[in-house]
């Protein structure tokens, strides 16, 4: 996982609530056994007018000109601004993989589906929870200002608007530590092999029926 550094990024507004992981990456693309290559199918059924199947050459697809990610002014966007309960639904990690593969690095919303939120952090995608009124304000500013960019500073837990307004956000200290340092969580947990082994031994004695497959 790459270290999450401070950056200034273009914002793309996706004005819908309850965007589920089926919409983020439809099921036909989950048949891959790899972690890469999902970006071309991000929001596939909204982004293209023709039905998408795995292995299609993206150059032959018909993009939906109405879909916000296809608009020229948002090309190169790195920050997705959206509404409540983003990433609800299935546990597919293909959703953050697709978002990152597309080139987005931050999602700002009033709330997130919990599994999606966790999956994002583990892959270096930063989900920022912001009050609905602030999200509203950012939507208004993004729509009114072509080329609207935000500065994302995870270290200081701060988003800065083009006119210098700062918005603080909350982030779990452990998540922050892992993101800033690009840490492999499994490696961290394996520091506690002794504790896990001791816990397991006691468990095996007290509830032997749990160790039975």
């Amino acid at each position: 996982m790459q270290k999450f550094k401070k950056f200034i990024g273009l914002v793309v507004p996706l004005d819908r609530a309850n965007i589920d992981t089926d919409a983020i990456i439809p099921k036909q693309f989950l048949k891959s056994i790899k972690r890469t290559g999902f970006g071309v199918n991000l929001f596939d059924s909204w982004r293209y007018l023709d039905p998408g199947e795995p292995g299609m050459d993206p150059g032959t697809r018909k993009p939906n000109p109405e879909f916000v990610l296809n608009k020229a002014i948002y090309h190169g966007a790195e920050i997705l601004l959206t509404r409540e309960n983003f990433g609800c639904g299935s546990s597919r990690e293909h959703a953050p993989w697709a978002i990152l593969d597309f080139g987005l690095r931050v999602v700002i919303a009033p709330s997130f589906g919990e599994i999606f939120f966790n999956n994002s952090v583990k892959n270096g995608l930063l989900p920022i929870v912001m009050p609905a009124t602030k999200v509203d304000q950012l939507f208004r500013e993004t729509m009114a200002t072509p080329g609207y960019k935000l500065t994302i500073d995870l270290e200081r837990q701060m988003v800065t608007t083009p006119i210098g307004e700062t918005i603080q956000f909350v982030v779990d200290p452990f998540h922050k530590h892992c993101l800033l340092n690009g840490l492999d969580e499994i490696g961290l947990s394996l520091q506690y092999v002794k504790e896990i082994t001791a816990f397991e031994k006691e468990r095996r004695q007290q509830q032997p029926w749990l160790f039975n497959l």
Binding site: R92, E93, P96, I115, K122, E185, L190, I196
Partner: peptide, 20 residues
């Protein structure tokens, strides 16, 4: 509860999850 693929790997390797 449901987990993502990174957590699947985490459980396979450590028999644990880091969570709150």
């Amino acid at each position: 509860f449901g987990i993502g693929t990174s957590e699947v790997e985490h459980v396979m390797a450590t028999q644990c999850l880091t969570t709150k």
